[in-house]
Write a protein that binds this DNA or RNA. Structure first.
Lengths: 301, 301
DNA sequence: ATGAAAGCGCTAACAT
DNA sequence: ATGTTAGCGCTTTCAT
């Protein structure tokens, strides 16, 4: 009947959920360790990508941010039990994550954004190691010999993979790893600044920085000491955030397909809820080196 | 019975919603006009504040982002009708917003983040006009006489209020408004950069920039032209985002209590759902001038 | 094919 | 105070 359109009828979602045992909602969980979470546009970008994919699939997106251990404890049951969510995306898991364990012991379909060792967990990830490898190889091909790196925090799988890519690129070319050229940050702008200051005495002629946000901090440190980029020090970032292109100089960086990994996560959830959790679905998407001025090899501007 | 704890029982939210006619969810709607939404940490910060307040009140937070007109059309019924949400927060409404009209014609409790003319709508806002007024007065007191401004987009109420504050501060001191000293941006870093370039020929000796993100862009333009801050041009931003303190030079800015406006929005929703929508609840929270080096009046660093 | 009825797991109103 | 029952508005199954 088309009286349905005239009266402006819409089914009651609660009744639908109860009778149909599906809520039409998916949960995006952002764990707390990420202090500087929103200082870096990575998470916002991911949220937007996932939101858009949810709209396309007619899901409602709920955001669960753990701001403290207590909140985490209180929220975990809501996430794992019940019919609250038809699926859950966990953005950036920590090692030995309690949430993952609980999720594994329950029925709710879930995917991680970022890889995980446990063979039972499904995930989507960008190829962080290959991206870092490409960046560092590029610097080496340009003749840089003292290539340093600013890594992300040690509890981040992405940071570990990027560091690994850096190392393989060097060792594959017969370079040894100089510990003085490896400094860690926490993905924040200021940690990039501090890391660069720490690096300067070791006289690097290039730096692979594990995020654009930290690269901005590094750039600031370089500018303050009058170091020329790329003349004295070449710089490559990671992420290809919007401001990478407008930095001074424009930042060469590794583009990560956040839109695609985000929407793929939603697709996988959809698939799992249709076909069950087995086998685990794992996808690693390629990254791409975007060459701008900061590495000293630009053809464009 | 405490068998409840032993079996790890948790009530089914769908059944609860259906029987109790309350979903325990609140929706946060972010309309689409904000293109650069996540290039500016303002929204992320707001999201985090609201998320935290929701956790405290035991609400689940759903995020609705309109990425296109179609999505908006598809989502509005879900937001306004049904028992999907116990309340809705609208972040940054546009003028003549369709969503607001629909919300007004339905029962769902809602609050805007940012003021609105219609006397029936409840909102929380920061005192943008007073903040801008304080910033510009401060610059004037420091002896600056050609005070320019970079405004936000014209469809933003916050941007309009900040511009109004700028104007009143000048006219109250007997200055006239020089149109060449007023340029508009869109809250993005690059728009701040372009606006500053546009401003330079008019020889301002101070600029009030309507957001920290744009101020960063302005700083970049100033640096590229060798203009000294604050010696040649004093700068004041708005928001007090984390990176304002670490900019070169550290940015004097107007602090906006995002955490408080965010959690107040949740509180108001809670209040409305208890006591009904009448009368409209409106709160404007004070802003605070944070003095750092970029205005040339620092006592600290 | 179309229509009637039986729950889904709670809350709230009622009766004891 | 405690226990019982009637729906909430759908989906699904079963009968026609």
């Amino acid at each position: 009947m088309q009286v349905i359109a005239e009266t402006g009828y819409h089914p009651d979602p609660a009744a639908r959920s109860l009778a149909g045992r599906k809520s039409g909602m998916i949960g995006l969980v952002i764990p707390l360790e990420i202090q500087s979470m929103f200082a870096d546009p990575f998470f916002p970008t991911l949220i937007q990508a996932i939101s858009s994919a949810c709209n396309a699939r007619d899901y409602i997106l709920s955001l669960i941010i753990f701001n403290s251990k207590e909140e985490e404890r209180a929220l975990i049951p809501k996430i794992t039990r019940n019919q609250l969510f038809d699926g859950v995306i966990v953005a950036s898991s920590r090692t030995g994550d309690l949430l993952i364990e609980q999720l594994l012991g329950n029925e709710v379909p879930f995917v991680l954004h970022g890889r995980h060792e446990d063979p039972r967990v499904s995930y989507v990830d960008a190829d962080n190691a290959a991206g870092a490898y490409a960046a560092v190889s590029h610097l080496a091909r340009l003749g840089r010999s003292r290539i340093a790196t600013v890594t992300g925090p040690s509890n981040s799988a992405a940071a570990a993979d990027r560091k690994r890519g850096y190392m393989s690129a060097l060792t594959d070319r017969g370079h040894s790893i100089d510990e003085a050229l490896v400094v860690s940050g926490d993905f924040s702008e200021s940690s990039g600044y501090e890391a660069m200051q720490q690096l300067l005495p070791a006289k690097p002629d290039a730096v692979f920085v594990a995020s654009d946000t930290m690269a901005l901090g590094a750039l600031r440190a370089l500018r303050e000491t009058g170091t020329r980029v790329p003349l004295d020090v070449a710089l490559v970032g990671f992420d290809d955030m919007p401001y990478a292109a407008t930095a001074t100089p424009p930042l060469t960086t590794v583009r990560q397909p956040i839109d695609q990994t985000g929407s793929l996560a939603v697709d996988i959830l959809f698939d799992i809820s249709q076909n069950g959790r087995e086998p685990a679905r794992r996808t690693v998407m390629p990254t791409e080196l975007v060459i701008r001025r900061s590495c000293g090899a630009s053809t464009v501007g």
